[in-house]
């Protein structure tokens, strides 16, 4: 699952697209107004629903369209990542990066590498809700 903020991250993704840079299959993109909009519960829900990895892309600190959304997200996501890693989640499953609108190829590289990292780890078995027992 890839979360893109509506501003820098989406523009970077579109730039990558217009430059015909490929990104891997198996990626679901969710556009949010700002990385600061993301509720940690959304990310937990993604893990519960079987997401093998979660990537969040936002604007560089200082460049947020809403002035401070990414700065709040930085704290929030740091705490979430620290907590999930403390209980044994592999660090590569939750990643976040800052990109500017002009960093199309950097975006593609980051995305590519992150997906590779997650593929190497294999499917997320720890948090996923067992579909057979769902009720």
């Amino acid at each position: 699952m890839v979360f893109l903020c509506n501003w820098c991250a989406t523009l970077a993704a579109e730039l990558a697209g217009s430059n015909r840079l490929a990104y891997p299959a198996g990626v679901r993109v969710v556009k949010v107004p700002c990385a600061g909009r993301i509720n940690p519960l959304h990310l937990l829900r993604a893990l519960q629903n079987g997401a093998d990895g979660i990537l969040v892309f936002g604007c560089h600190p200082g460049d947020c369209h809403y002035a401070k959304g990414n700065l709040l997200a930085r704290r929030r996501l740091s705490v979430l990542k620290g907590l999930l890693e403390a209980v044994g989640m592999e660090p590569a499953r939750l990643q976040f990066s800052w990109v500017t609108a002009s960093e199309g190829s950097r975006f593609a590289t980051l995305l590519d590498r992150a997906v590779q990292d997650v593929r190497t780890l294999g499917p997320n078995r720890k948090f996923v809700k067992n579909p057979a027992a769902a009720g």
Partner: peptide
């Protein structure tokens, strides 16, 4: 409060760099 605030030099140790 912790998550209502931020500092410019908050840790970036969890951010994936390109």
């Amino acid at each position: 409060p912790l998550l209502c605030a931020f500092e410019d030099d908050d840790t970036e140790e969890f951010v994936t760099d390109g």
